Amino acid sequence: MNSEFTIAVHSLIYLAYLPDHMASSETIAKNVSTNPARIRKIMGCLRKNGLVKTKEGIGGGYILECDPETATLAQVLRSVSYGSLKPNWCTGNPEEACPISSGTQAVMDQVFRDAESHLEKYLDQITLRSVLEKIKQTR
């Protein structure tokens, strides 16, 4: 899984903590400890998937568009990092006569698709609100 998922969750939880308040990419970036340009890229994906909305100009920024009671971590996964469990490399050379190389990639692709499906089902049970409540309990 890539770091965009963690940054997206952190950003959404931050916005859920400040209901009905706009937060700029600079403010979110400072809270998440990353670059504002990276926040804008991730928030763009979240906006396309209906999790946040934006307002440009002075006093603008990002605000939750979704309900933290029903929005799930699976929605965040699908927005920013679906397909990221599968590595971007191939093993072996399928053109060689190696009996392992000829089938490894297809088998491993299925393993990663199945793993991602299980992860998505698990994350579908976790709402933004439940994450925020757990965070509040740890303080």
Rank of each mutant, 00 (worst) to 15 (best):
G44Y: 05
M108N: 11
C45M: 06
I13T: 14
D114Y: 01
M22V: 09
I13W: 09
T27R: 04
Y122S: 10
S102L: 05
F112W: 13
D124I: 06
A23G: 08
T72G: 03
V131F: 00
P94N: 04
I135F: 09
M22K: 10
L51H: 05
M1G: 05
I28M: 00
E4A: 06
M43K: 02
V76R: 03
M108G: 09
L77W: 07
E69R: 15
R40W: 03
A16F: 05
K48I: 00
R40F: 07
E69Y: 13
A16S: 14
T138K: 08
K30C: 15
L77C: 07
I42T: 07
A97E: 13
A115C: 10
L18P: 14
Y17I: 14
A74W: 07
R78C: 06
E116S: 01
P36N: 06
T27P: 02
E56N: 00
T72E: 09
S25W: 04
P87V: 09
R129W: 12
V32G: 02
T34F: 02
N49G: 00
K48Q: 03
K30V: 15
G50M: 03
A115T: 10
S3A: 11
I126G: 12
G44M: 09
V131Q: 11
P99V: 08
L77G: 10
T27I: 13
S130F: 09
C66Q: 03
L15F: 13
S81E: 00
N35Y: 03
L132W: 11
H21A: 13
C98A: 10
P68G: 06
F5H: 01
L119Y: 01
L132Q: 14
I7W: 12
S101E: 08
I126H: 10
M22P: 07
I42Q: 09
V32D: 03
G59V: 03
H21Q: 14
L18Y: 15
T54C: 09
Q125S: 15
Q110L: 11
A29Y: 04
K86A: 04
H21G: 12
N35L: 03
R139Y: 06
K134P: 11
L132S: 13
